[in-house]
Design a binder for these strands. Structure first.
Length: 423
RNA sequence: GGUGAGGUGGCUGAGUGGUCGAAAGCACAGCUUUGCUAAAGCUGCGUACCGGAAACGGUACCGAGGGUUCGAAUCCCUCCCUCACCGCCA
């Protein structure tokens, strides 16, 4: 949510920044400002009337104490009361409209955000490792896992339909080992607090982190839309601090969690249909930071490095790209995507998206801290996948496949997995 | 799910339908004094919004939302949450 004061102060600047995203969000700015003006005028009028009522009502009390007749003056207040409820409705209406607009206007891309309309314009920031030299043809994870009995698509379809998968045997164990390995890394080496949150989420929290109201169709609702299945642990983790005034000494707050993630993938039908690259339910370890506003951009570098560390430890080749303005998520001001190389796909797969939301989420959820002057100021929030599991699983299988059909387990994972190969 | 008790400022905790944004204590901040591993006194100390360049002024907020009333923390209704006991259950 943008700061209405900031929008009031520099409407043209805000519009210009929104324009870099493409789309038509900038058009809502004028509507927002009109609404703001109406709202404030009505608010001022209402407050004046309330002041009158308060004052005169007190007089009535005093007069009655003296036993005087107050019939006439009571009628006067009754009239003011009617005016207050009339103007009060206007205030409410304008208030609601303004809030709706503010909740749907995306964040401003940061000043140096690369220009561009879509993912083809995302610049590569850095690259780690090299594409593995495989003996023979690169098979894809579906073939590899099929031979080893790691994934069961038919069973998943029977249970839940398309877009789901059952991990079986060593596959299920590998999934579990990866979760453990990633959490251990973030908690043990990067100083995160480990969290195990609920997966069913209140609507207010989904609004807080920005999944709603804009992306309703992407979330699984339960209980008639009162609750939602978590689309990412970002939602419960960040909302841990909703409606709170944290202490500046707590910065940086670092929390990590494993959760399954549920997404309808509305609008993505037909994309990435082979294998487990795009699922309605997938596992992910998420890392969330809450920091002082002065620190957030530096912290984004740290957080991204922490996510990269997972891939480095597993010896997986990857690249980091920065999202251009046109590809940037609605809530984010700056995002790095980490893409791991998957030899069987012949392409890089996004396994992590690391974003700085500045105060956009904090303002939505009322997450503040007391600054040096004792003022309540909105924190900055960041998050990143650390990392998404199915695609990591794909990269692992395809990178470490052996000519004999087995899959080697990288050194760093053997402790968690309990073996040095599958098959 | 049932029954009972509660939800007041950072915490504890008073509160009569009108002078209550709310006593008192604690905590916290500043000042003063005496001095020494502290004490006493004084002062200040909620949040949001509106107006204002600012100083400051105003309005609202006593779990949430409705209602009664000229006027509600205080009366009525609904809901939520917490605690206790009971029932059920992984």
């Amino acid at each position: 949510m943008l700061d209405i004061r900031a929008v009031r102060e520099d409407p043209e600047g805000v519009k210009a920044q929104l324009k870099t995203r493409g789309g038509d969000a900038f058009g809502q700015v004028d509507e927002l400002l009109r609404c703001d003006e109406v709202r404030r005028a009505a608010e001022t009028e209402k407050q004046k009337l309330q002041g009158d009522r308060k004052r005169i009502s007190k007089e009535i009390g005093a007069l009655k104490g003296k036993g005087e007749d107050t019939t006439e003056i009571e009628a006067q207040v009754r009239e003011i009361g009617a005016q207050i409820s009339a103007i009060g409705r206007q205030v409410e209406e304008a208030d609601q409209k303004q809030r709706d607009l503010l909740l749907s206007i995306p964040n401003l891309p940061h000043a140096k955000c690369p220009a561009g309309a879509d993912e083809t314009a995302n610049p590569e920031v850095r690259c780690w490792g090299e594409k593995p030299a495989l003996d023979g043809e690169a098979r894809d994870h579906v073939a590899i896992a099929g031979d080893l009995g790691l994934l069961d698509f038919e069973a998943a379809t029977k249970i839940s339909g398309s877009g789901f998968v059952v991990f079986r045997g060593q596959g299920a164990k590998l999934e579990r080992a990866l979760i453990q390995f990633m959490l251990d890394t973030h908690v043990g080496e990067h100083g995160y607090e480990e969290v195990s949150p609920p997966f069913i989420i209140q609507r207010e929290c989904m609004i807080g982190t920005g999944q709603l109201p804009k992306f309703e169709e992407e979330a699984y609702g339960v209980l008639d839309g009162e609750m939602y299945l978590a689309p990412t642990a970002e939602v419960p983790l960040t909302n841990l601090y909703r409606e709170m005034i944290v202490k500046a000494e707590q910065f940086p707050i670092k929390v990590a969690a494993y959760t399954p993630c549920f997404r309808t993938e509305a609008g993505a039908a037909g994309r990435d249909t082979r294998g487990i690259i795009r699922m309605h339910q997938f596992d992910k370890v998420e890392i969330v930071n809450i920091v002082h506003p002065d620190e957030s951009f530096a912290q984004l570098e740290t957080l991204t490095a922490e996510a990269e560390k997972i891939l480095q430890k597993l010896g997986l080749h990857y690249r980091v790209i920065e999202l251009c303005a046109g590809d940037l998520g609605a809530n984010s001001t700056k995002t790095y995507d980490i893409e791991v190389w998957a030899p069987g796909q012949g392409q890089y797969l996004e396994v992590s998206s690391c974003s700085n939301f500045v105060d956009y989420q904090a303002r939505r959820m009322g997450l503040r801290f007391k600054d040096a002057d004792g003022k309540n100021v909105f924190c900055h929030t960041l998050n990143g996948s650390g990392t998404a599991l199915p695609r990591l699983f794909v990269a692992l299988l395809e990178t470490y496949q052996q000519p004999d059909g087995s899959v080697a387990i990288p050194e760093t994972l053997r402790g968690h997995f309990g073996a040095d190969k599958i098959g």
